[in-house]
Amino acid sequence: MNVLDALAVFAAGVAAGGINTIVGSGSLITFPTMLALGYVPVVANVSNNIGLVMGSVTGAYGYREELKGQRERLVRLGSASLVGALVGAVLLLGLPAGAFQVIVPVLIVIALVLVVVQPRLQAWTLSRRDGEGRAHGGPWLWTGVLLAGVYGGYFGAAQGIVLIALLGIALDDDLQRVNAAKNVLSAVVNGSAAIVFIGMWLFADTRIDWLAVLLIAAGSILGGLVGARVGRRIPPLVLRGVIVAVGLVAIANLLL
């Protein structure tokens, strides 16, 4: 990797860290950048996932005010993210490359539709749920977060959009607090998958480009902190519009 390539990877990490914190789908910047520089897809995916872990953590830290009072909720849903991420990471290393790429655009479209209609669906759902469901989303949300974790452990791009859609509909809470919870769950997914990838690197033949990991990590830390400062000031309606715009770009990048 030459200096220009290193700068490109670092810059992609900054952008991905910021986008992941505000919306999600930052991997659609770093992953294509690494492919353009000649990385093998699985190596790019694994290295990208590990590199973005710290960006997810700093993004969650930047939303610490919005996270107050959500501990029990996040413990419950975090267990679903943990299990799902481990399953997804194992699938990535065991299934043919590109096995999920056919359904990724469909998942993003569904998520964007859910984000758009979220206020009405949320009101309808909450009117039919008991007190526990209002606080934690009930068993169907746990299952949805589990499946989002599988997807995130396997590829991860736009998992934030999927999580915002699920959490926004199921939880009786402000969109900024939902986004804060999304950042924590994304960090759990990325971190859990990274542990699997590093374990396979230590004990099997999984390849990781550690220079790319360090560059993406450094960039995503900076991007995560900046993204939190920006994202926390965005009104819910504008934030919803940003989510839809980023999702449409993600679909275009995947299909073209």
Score class of each variant (00 low, 15 high):
Ile29Ser: 06
Ser27Asp: 04
Thr58Lys: 00
Thr143Ala: 15
Gln70Met: 14
Val109Trp: 09
Val46Cys: 09
Leu92Asp: 04
Tyr63Lys: 02
Ala111Asn: 04
Thr143Ile: 14
Ile103Arg: 04
Val104Asp: 01
Ala135Ile: 00
Val14Phe: 04
Gly38Ser: 07
Gly24Ile: 07
Gly138Phe: 05
Gly69Lys: 10
Thr143Ser: 09
Leu35Asn: 02
Gly137Lys: 05
Gln122Lys: 13
Val53Thr: 04
Gly51Ala: 11
Leu147Gln: 02
Gly13Ala: 08
Asn20Pro: 07
Val117Ala: 15
Ser47Leu: 07
Ile110Cys: 13
Ala97Glu: 11
Ser81Gly: 13
Val115Met: 11
Ala85Gly: 07
Gly98Asn: 10
Phe31Thr: 05
Gly137Glu: 05
Val109Pro: 04
Val23Trp: 02
Gly94Trp: 12
Gly88Val: 09
Leu74Gln: 09
Gly78Ile: 08
Arg71Cys: 08
Pro139Ala: 12
Arg73Cys: 06
Gly98Asp: 13
Asn48Met: 11
Arg129Trp: 09
Pro96Phe: 11
Gly69Glu: 11
Leu52Arg: 00
Lys68Arg: 15
Leu82Glu: 05
Ile103Val: 14
Pro105Cys: 03
Ala11Cys: 11
Pro139Arg: 06
Leu86Arg: 00
Val87Pro: 02
Glu132Ile: 10
Val9Pro: 02
Val90Arg: 12
Ser79Gln: 04
Leu93His: 06
Leu93Glu: 08
Val46Pro: 02
Arg128Ile: 02
Leu107Pro: 03
Thr21Ala: 10
Tyr61Arg: 01
Ser47Thr: 11
Leu37Gly: 09
Leu28Lys: 01
Val115Ile: 15
Leu67Val: 10
Ile19Thr: 12
Val57Leu: 14
Gly26Phe: 03
Pro32Cys: 03
Arg128Gln: 09
Ala111His: 01
Val145Ser: 06
Leu52Asn: 08
Tyr61Asp: 00
Leu121Arg: 10
Val53Gln: 01
Leu91Gln: 02
Leu95Val: 12
Gln118Ser: 15
Leu93Ser: 09
Phe31Lys: 01
Leu28Trp: 02
Gly38Lys: 04
Pro119Phe: 04
Ala60Ile: 03
Val40Gly: 11
Leu52Ile: 07
Val40Lys: 12
Ile108Asn: 01
Ile110Pro: 00
Ala16Thr: 12
Leu147Pro: 01
Gly24Met: 08
Val117Ile: 15
Ala97Cys: 00
Val117Phe: 15
Thr125Pro: 04
Leu146Asp: 10
Ile22His: 03
Ala89Pro: 05
Val115Arg: 03
Val57Gln: 05
Arg134Asp: 03
Ala135Gly: 08
Val23Ala: 15
Gln122Gly: 09
Leu77Met: 14
Val23Leu: 06
Asp130Tyr: 05
Trp124Glu: 10
Ala15Val: 15
